[in-house]
């Protein structure tokens, strides 16, 4: 009984602290949201506030006029995120698992082989040459999925760390005696046992793919294949570029009419909106996974 009371108190404490942290995390985002519906001139003359004196939906009208483009970009981003996450996470787990086996001879060699890529890379030029000249992936959906992010050393080590510390070797040994093949062991036992970390890595991979604009920048030239971040970053960075004093003078572009601040805020909101809608569903699995993993471990 005593433990229960303590647990309850602890939960109360946790709820309070987490509420404060959540509010602190959300306030700036709320400020962006409010700014996106604040009238442009108020935004400039009296700054950002949570209670603007004049509201305006102009920035969203600006977006609606380009809704076809935006919706298509959403579609591309969702597809890329889905493909990247499913393939990436599976390959990552398959790569991490053998390294977690204590009597696997190559475990350290492999670990070093993978870790090395976390630090050293040949730079964008050589990758670009390879992907575009040898693999010809420019302007295909694979250009957004395959380069750079599919398997990252960071995720591999996260998964390996989980196998090493949370899954007992004895489980494997007992199955091995039954004569199960390594591949079966991995898919039918190890993979389900690692749901918490798989869920984590899926989330990370998903976020990386959703936020990525690098691949789009280098390997996509047809705007029909732009993901949402490419669409947004293009507008944002054009503005950023033109704002730099030297560039503006150089090009004689000081009188180009740039999208205003509230439009930029609206773009930021549009970039995270689908996440707000999709995330709770993903989370369902994550929390389930966390609880499930805890019971089995």
């Amino acid at each position: 009984m005593k433990e229960n009371i303590e647990t309850k108190q602890f939960r109360k404490f946790a709820t309070i602290v987490l509420s404060v942290i959540s509010v602190l995390a959300l306030l700036p985002i709320l400020l962006i949201a409010v700014a996106s519906v604040t009238s442009e001139d108020v935004l400039i003359s009296s700054g950002y506030t949570f209670f603007p004196s004049k509201l305006s939906l102009d920035s969203y009208y600006y977006m609606v006029r380009q809704s076809a483009t935006i919706l298509r970009a959403y579609g591309i981003s969702i597809m890329v995120t889905f493909l990247g996450t499913v393939i990436g996470v599976l390959v990552t787990a398959m790569l991490a698992y053998p390294m977690a086996r204590k009597n696997f001879r190559l475990r350290n060699v492999m670990a070093f082989f993978i870790f090395f890529t976390m630090l050293f890379n040949g730079g964008i030029v050589s990758s670009y040459i390879m992907w575009s000249q040898i693999f010809h992936i420019k302007n295909t959906i694979w250009a957004l999925v395959v380069p750079n992010f599919l398997v990252t050393a960071f995720n591999v080590f996260l998964v390996r760390n989980y196998y090493v510390n949370s899954v007992h070797e004895s489980i494997i040994e007992s199955v091995q005696i039954d004569g199960a093949s390594e591949i079966r062991i991995f898919f039918s036992i190890m993979l389900p046992l690692s749901i918490p970390v798989i869920a984590t890595v899926s989330l990370f991979t998903g976020i990386i793919y959703w936020n990525d604009w690098i691949n789009g920048l280098y390997y996509i030239t047809d705007p029909k294949m732009y993901g949402i971040q490419n669409l947004l970053i293009r507008i944002m960075d054009n503005i950023q570029f033109l704002k730099s004093a030297s560039n503006a003078a150089l090009l004689g572009t000081q009188n180009i009419d740039l999208p205003g601040t509230s439009v930029r805020m609206a773009m930021a909101i549009i970039g995270i909106l689908p996440i707000l809608i999709i995330f709770p569903f993903v989370q369902q699995y994550m929390i389930k996974g966390v609880v499930l993993g805890a019971v089995k471990g």
Partner: peptide, 21 residues
Amino acid sequence: SSTAAELMSAGNYFGYIASYS
């Protein structure tokens, strides 16, 4: 983070200096 045009639109600036052709 604002440009002259944005600032001018807000109404509480008088002017700015820039070069034009």
